[in-house]
């Protein structure tokens, strides 16, 4: 049975789309047939991060309005055989999203795919509510700072109250915490919340911690999900995260300040 996973956060700019792109890529690289849907209608970004923006002809809203078939709108990733992207519309707004329409598309996708990753827009308005409504599991993306944690808390409340599973009284959505843009150095200086602080506040299981890294920005700009970058700590952290999601026991990395070796200290980087 296909699983619908929403990547959500409440707050904007915390790394939902970056996480969606790398998470979906990671699932696909492990042989799962995966589709990632951009729910941010009107502000499409996922196609840029995935490097397929020029190949967008039909989009999510076209399929919702039955102006195009799913087959026409799905874009096959150029690096991964098992990965497809359903881009958002640039010209429409979130009113185009209807519960019936989204459900119809998800049901159609469930026949072909193992995982359906929904990249939620920021906020708690319709777009975000539609992205999470049909979810079976949720990745809650949080930065280690108070406003981001507060917004994630709010989203967790909505997952527990306004999702289809909650309304129909089924087993609740399985929640996973993803902490992004983590900087151990600033945590040590007391400028940033620690992993423990965030875990304590949100009280949901931790799936992964993604360290802040320059490679994330360059990966976004070049349209290659950072998980493809084996040399990047962020890419490795996403790799670990996907492994944990698939049930592997992988210890957390990049939580402590990197020890600078003697040679590195002498010769620099």
């Amino acid at each position: 049975m296909a699983k619908v996973i929403v990547v959500t956060s409440g707050k904007g700019g915390v790394g939902k789309t970056t996480s969606s792109a790398s998470f979906a890529t990671g699932l696909a690289m492990r042989g799962n047939k995966t589709v990632v849907i951009d729910f941010d209608v009107g502000l499409r970004n996922l196609d840029l991060i995935m490097g397929c923006e020029r190949r967008v002809v039909y989009d999510f809203v076209n399929v919702l309005n039955q102006e195009a078939s799913l087959k026409q709108a799905l874009i096959k990733d150029k690096r991964c055989d098992n990965l497809y992207i359903l881009p958002a519309s640039q010209t429409r707004d979130k009113d185009a999203l209807t519960e019936e329409g989204v459900e119809r598309i998800l049901n159609e996708l469930k026949e072909d795919f193992d995982y359906i990753v929904c990249d939620s827009p920021a906020g708690i308005e319709k777009g975000a509510q539609m992205a999470l409504f049909f979810a079976d599991e949720a990745l809650v993306v949080t930065n280690p700072e108070v406003s981001s944690v507060r917004d994630s808390d709010r989203i967790l409340g909505i997952l527990a109250a306004k999702s289809k599973r909650a309304i129909e009284g089924h087993e609740p959505i399985k929640e996973h915490l993803v902490i992004t843009r983590y900087m151990p150095k600033r945590v040590d200086l007391g400028e940033m919340l620690s992993v423990e602080d965030v875990k304590e506040l949100l009280s949901i299981p931790l799936l992964g911690v993604i360290p802040e890294s320059e490679s994330v920005l360059s990966a976004s700009n070049s349209g290659v999900p950072v998980i493809h970058d084996d040399n990047s700590p962020s890419g490795q952290a996403y790799e670990d995260l996907v492994g944990r999601f698939m049930g592997e026991d992988i210890p957390m990395r990049f939580l402590d300040v990197e020890k600078v070796g003697l040679l590195k200290r002498i010769f620099g980087t």
């Binding site: 507060r150 917004d151 808390d153 709010r154 967790l156 409340g157 909505i158 527990a160 109250a161 009280s203």
Partner: peptide, 8 residues
């Protein structure tokens, strides 16, 4: 028995 979250 479950966390009461922001906004609830």
């Amino acid at each position: 028995n479950s966390p009461v979250r922001s906004g609830q």
